[in-house]
Design a protein around this nucleic acid. Structure first.
Length: 574
DNA sequence: GCCGTTTTCGGCCCGACTGTTTTCAGTCG
């Protein structure tokens, strides 16, 4: 799809224009870039079917941008963009990633020192050339050095799953401070974005100074960026920044709404406020000088005429209109999940026995758990062959009888995670797969096939009547491997036709399907299942990340089949 | 450059903190 390419170009144009001192146009270009990023239809198809006029239906696209899109689709280039690059021949996006550098400073650095990219910038700071520039100074230079180090170390963003344990720990510590009366995480963490730039924590405190001192004195703090009465910002040794905001109680809801974002969602909600003759800021919702809401998020949304919008949905991608109409989906919740069907044991590459997994699942108040070890062609994981699978089947039958004897209403289901071979066949014989309660089929090899071959491979596997679930469907590994080349729309059509369930894999490195693809699947009426792919019993708790993606994808209970009681679930399988 | 229940022009979210140009521009969220 050309959508992402165009979005990137429009983001770049916005940056260039900003540096060039053009006002308001950057706003328009960013808006259209965001709109393209989340557009489900292929912009090329839209143009092919309806020309310029059809393009203008895309939010944020007017006459000028429609023509630019046409130009790009026809020639692969946009002259306006090429001209800007010639006029300002430096890597804007790269330089703007350095904390403390904005469009104005980047431009000055180019004009004074011919700095075009991060390498030039690094050279300049080593030679101490930044500080003497008019408007810069020692501290600015030092901040640039640290900004560069940060980029190198972290590439700027962290996985949600990597930082979540720290977030929970910091919140726990703050909660133990008796002057702190309310606390919540905000920002992209609260929205369950798959990667996180920094962490925002909001508190209500009866003693601002004490809270700020406690926060900046935590042992993990490596650098204090800012310390004020209402805001502190620190860098943790692990490499990410945490911001603390101290909020008056009457503004906690509006501040939480504001700092949760997304930026686009906030702009939209503030505009609604303006239309109603009100003003929305982090301090509250105001009519003239009088605050009329702000203590809770609920009341802010209510007075704006919106039903409460779950943080994960706040991306200005349709949720606001639905909230106005009272048509928001009733999202699936953690408590709806009745079991996890993707668990590995010591039989293949897991760390725990079936019994240990079962104990953990019972602790999580599940009604069932599914054992799904790897199969034979994945040697590295000690995958099971037909004979071993049948033996495991006997064992699980016995364990289920034991549970019954103990009067426990818990059921162990037996499945496997069978490999989809390059030709679309499976590495376990059908007559063995038939004996299992369910089968997950996944791609674990030859991941670089071209789109046509990969699509055919996966479709063939889904058409196998023993395959119930397609595991980690896009195959991505965050920060490491992109999605497979494939025609996902065709995959969805086949899933719908064959009744194959798509997995929402909760592993923080996968989050696959992600929110965006979950919305696509839901739109096509494809059912999904939230699993953990746990390789040790503690990992069954990772289900919360799958729930987060399900929320981002607007999934309801009826979209997710492991909310069903065990008999209904088994009926669902092919 | 886009957009419209103040619609074809005029507005486009709003405030805190920092560093430096010492009164405010730049950056960030």
């Amino acid at each position: 799809m050309k959508n992402q390419e165009l979005a990137k170009i429009f983001f770049d144009i916005a940056d260039y224009l900003e540096i060039d001192g053009v006002s308001f146009k950057p706003y328009a270009y960013r808006k259209v870039a965001l709109s393209l990023e989340s557009l489900k239809e292929d912009v090329f198809e839209i143009y092919k079917n309806g020309g310029i006029d059809a393009l203008k239906i895309i939010p944020g696209v007017g006459e000028g941008i429609a023509k630019a899109i046409e130009e790009y689709l026809k020639t692969g280039k946009i002259k306006h963009f090429e001209d800007l690059k010639k006029k300002l021949p430096f890597k804007v996006e790269e330089l703007l990633r350095v904390e403390g550098l904005g469009p104005k400073k980047v431009k000055i650095l180019y004009q004074k020192l011919k700095i075009k990219n991060l390498k030039d910038l690094e050279k300049a700071v080593k030679l101490h050339k930044i500080a003497p520039i008019f408007g810069f100074g020692e501290k600015t230079e030092k901040n640039i050095i640290q900004g560069l180090e940060f980029l190198k170390r972290s590439k700027g963003r962290f996985l949600l799953g990597e930082i979540m344990p720290t977030v929970k720990e910091v919140i726990k510590r703050l909660k133990n401070q008796k002057e702190i009366k309310e606390i919540s995480v905000a920002g992209s963490v609260r929205r369950q974005k798959e990667t996180i730039g920094d962490i925002d924590i909001l508190v209500v405190s009866e003693n601002h100074k004490k809270t700020a001192d406690f926060f900046i004195s935590m042992p993990e703090v490596e650098k204090v960026w800012a310390k004020g009465d209402t805001k502190c910002s620190v860098r943790f040794k692990e490499g990410f920044d945490i911001d603390l905001r101290i909020i008056p109680p009457k503004s906690f809801g509006s501040a939480l709404q504001y700092f949760t974002g997304s930026k686009e969602h906030n702009i939209a909600t503030r505009k609604i406020a303006i239309e109603k003759g009100l003003k929305l800021s982090e301090y509250g919702l105001f009519k003239g000088n009088k605050q009329i809401a702000g203590k809770t998020e609920d009341e802010v949304y209510k007075i704006l005429g919106l039903s409460y919008i779950a943080p994960e949905m706040r991306e200005d991608s349709g949720e606001i209109q639905m909230a106005i109409n009272g048509k928001l989906p009733k999202l699936v919740e953690l408590k709806d999940i009745k079991g996890d069907l993707h668990c590995h044991t010591t039989a293949s590459d897991g760390k725990n026995s079936i019994e240990e997994i079962v104990k953990k699942a019972i602790e999580l108040k599940y009604e069932y758990v599914g054992i799904s070890d790897h199969t034979k062609s994945l040697f590295i994981t000690n995958g099971l062959n037909e004979k071993q699978l049948l033996k495991q089947n006997e064992l699980i039958k016995k364990l289920n009888l034991n549970l019954k004897d103990k009067n426990l209403k818990f059921r162990i289901l037996h499945g496997c995670e069978v490999n989809i071979l390059p030709d679309g066949s499976l590495d376990i014989k059908d007559k063995v797969l038939e004996k299992l309660d369910y089968v997950i089929a996944s791609v674990h090899s030859n991941m670089k096939m071209n789109s046509k071959e990969m699509t055919a491979r996966i479709i063939k596997a889904m058409e196998n009547s023993n395959v119930d679930i397609f595991g980690h469907p896009t195959g991505r590994w965050l920060g490491n491997r992109d999605e497979y080349q494939m025609d996902f729309d065709k995959i969805l059509e086949t899933a719908k036709k064959t009744g194959t369930i798509l997995e929402i894999n909760s592993s923080p490195y996968r989050l696959d399907l992600n929110g965006f693809n979950i919305r696509r699947a839901k739109a096509k009426g494809v059912k999904m299942i939230i699993n953990t792919d746990g390789h040790q019993k503690e990992q069954l708790e990772l289900i919360e990340y799958g729930i987060g993606q399900a929320h981002k994808g607007w999934a309801e209970r009826s979209d997710i089949i492991n909310t069903l009681p065990v008999e209904d679930l088994l009926n669902y399988f092919k």
